[in-house]
Amino acid sequence: MKYALFLFLGFTISMYAQNPIEITLVKQTKLKADTIVGIDNFGTIFYTKLNTIYKKNKSETISYNNLQLGELTSANSFNPLKINLFYQELNTAIILDNRLAEIFKIDFSSINNYKNVSHTSTGFDNTIWIFNQDTQRLEVFDYKTKTTKAQTLKPIDSPILDLKSNYNYSYLLTKEELIIYNYFGSVVKKIKNDGYTKLVENNESLFLLKDNNLFYLGKDSKDIIPIKTDNILIQQFFVINETLYIYNDETLQEFQIKIK
């Protein structure tokens, strides 16, 4: 009986124990920024400094700022052809092209059906995901027609920690849970938040930050696997394909990460 019990326990542990994912340092780059917005497949870095967004590659650095809108709350470069900026103080979003030229301005206070927005993120085509504080719902907002294409069915009553998205899904991290929505506002998956404070999406897989430690959640998995970072200070992080970037205020570190 005891032998059978030991076998069962051993099988249970082997099913759920996950070996940490290892990373290998590739290079380090000196960079002084307030916020790293994103990095594309060609190594172009988008970052903010003193309320200005910069796009820096090997040949040039270009920038954009709009001091009339106050402090830049967030920026998203998932689609480098339609970069979105959000200024919460004036409830306004700006869409930039790949040369950081302004192509759309959305004043949520002046449109029909006023929206009090706290978070924004990239959507498909001419849409952005927004979190409407008055309704406590996520919305897919078309900034050309100034209409809501879809919204989540139930209000979200837990404090919002982070919002990321791609063309198909939105990933909302609240204090209580991680919720994944499809483009129509329907819930795809819910996972209890066990202390995670930030997230990054890469090819529909997620990387989560908790107490200066990184974790990985695969696209079709419920298992959250630790990433071995050896106590590196993680102020900001990004993942592009098999490259993990970690920024610590002065240095941008690039790591190779291989997930089986």
Rank of each mutant, 00 (worst) to 15 (best):
Y143G: 11
T145V: 05
T147D: 10
T148E: 02
T148H: 01
K149H: 03
A150C: 08
Q151A: 06
Q151S: 10
T152G: 09
L153S: 11
L153D: 11
K154H: 06
P155V: 04
D157R: 05
S158M: 02
S158E: 07
P159S: 06
I160V: 07
I160A: 00
L163G: 00
S165Y: 00
S165N: 04
Y167I: 11
Y167S: 12
Y167K: 08
N168A: 08
N168F: 03
Y169T: 09
L172A: 00
K175F: 04
L178I: 07
L178G: 05
I179N: 02
I180Q: 07
Y181V: 13
Y181K: 06
Y183Q: 14
F184R: 13
G185C: 07
G185Y: 03
G185Q: 04
V187G: 08
V188T: 09
K190M: 11
I191C: 06
K192A: 11
T197D: 10
T197W: 02
K198W: 01
K198D: 08
L199H: 02
V200G: 01
E204Q: 10
E204K: 08
E204D: 14
E204R: 10
S205Y: 00
S205A: 11
L208S: 11
N212V: 12
N213F: 09
N213H: 12
N213M: 13
L214D: 14
F215H: 15
F215Q: 13
Y216F: 15
G218P: 12
K219H: 14
K219T: 15
K219M: 15
D220F: 12
S221Y: 07
K222A: 09
D223G: 12
I227M: 13
I227D: 12
K228G: 11
K228A: 14
T229E: 11
N231H: 06
N231C: 03
N231Q: 07
I232Y: 00
I232S: 05
I234N: 08
Q235I: 10
F237I: 12
F238C: 04
F238T: 05
F238M: 05
V239H: 02
I240L: 01
